[in-house]
Nucleic acid binder design. Structure first.
Lengths: 135, 135
DNA sequence: GTTGGCGGTCTCAAAAAGAGACCAGCACTA
DNA sequence: TAGTGCTGGTCTCTTTTTGAGACCGCCAAC
């Protein structure tokens, strides 16, 4: 058996996987996923799915986020159309963040994932401990 | 109306949200979510959900991942129990990566999210363009 | 008049990610 | 027999991202 043939076979498999199977490389799905797979994005979306929050409330709700990252992440979520930002002209102007329709429709599948994490976090913790012990 | 009372009210709301509503701050769900919300994790999990892959195959399948990040991400996924790594003692030793049962059970909810992204990526793209035009 | 909350921006250090050289071992080729 | 390529990585260096914290004007309450 020639190695060139094996090589070609592998390349065909890869091509099939890229076009028919998954479209992993250049497809816009990656853009979307990367937009919501940041360290804080999912957390803020889950928070806002419950109810609208103000800037300072979110800051207290997620104690270990820096003000800079809260600003930045909310900006990105707003840019991608998940979050609506409304400024109320009160004496100290207050700003409310809420989910848009797009954000609400996305929070469904994301909630599924969070629920999975809720159910299986001990399995993950065990796997991690076992792996570390094996090392 | 006293501002202290308003303040207390806000704090109670936040407390309620943290304990009853979502447990956003210290809960293990965040550990799990952060483990799979990396830039490449979801992509590799979706790839391995299709079928097991070898190191070089994954490298070609995801052309813009660096070798270092592929190694690192696969290591992390293995540590968290999502991925199984098997070395075959062939002439150039080949390594195969596959999903574990835990990984397969997680890939379900994650696939939901990817499907949402597939259906709504144009809406996100439009929102992004509209936001940028507004600026 | 000083303090504290509001919603941020700015700067600087630390951590993470990307680019690319390098490694041993074996198969095939010229 | 020397050269080339594929295997799955590691090591170093540079660039990007993130975190920590100071600072901002404004206004209300004490």
């Amino acid at each position: 058996m020639d190695s060139k043939i094996l090589n070609l076979k592998a390349k065909l498999e890869v091509y099939k996987a890229m076009t028919g199977g998954g479209n992993f490389a250049d497809c816009p799905v990656r853009d979307v996923i990367q937009g919501i797979s940041g360290k804080w994005s999912s957390l803020l979306v889950m928070a806002l799915a419950e109810k609208p929050y103000r800037f300072g409330e979110l800051r207290r709700l997620v104690p270990d986020i820096s003000q800079r990252m809260l600003t930045q992440t909310l900006y990105d979520l707003q840019r991608d159309g998940y979050v609506h930002r409304e400024v109320f002209p009160t004496k100290p102007p207050s700003v409310e963040y809420s989910l848009t329709d797009l954000g609400r429709s996305m929070s469904g599948p994301m909630h599924q994932l969070v629920q999975w994490a809720e159910l299986n976090h001990d399995a993950v913790r065990d796997a991690r401990a076992a792996f570390d012990a094996r090392t």
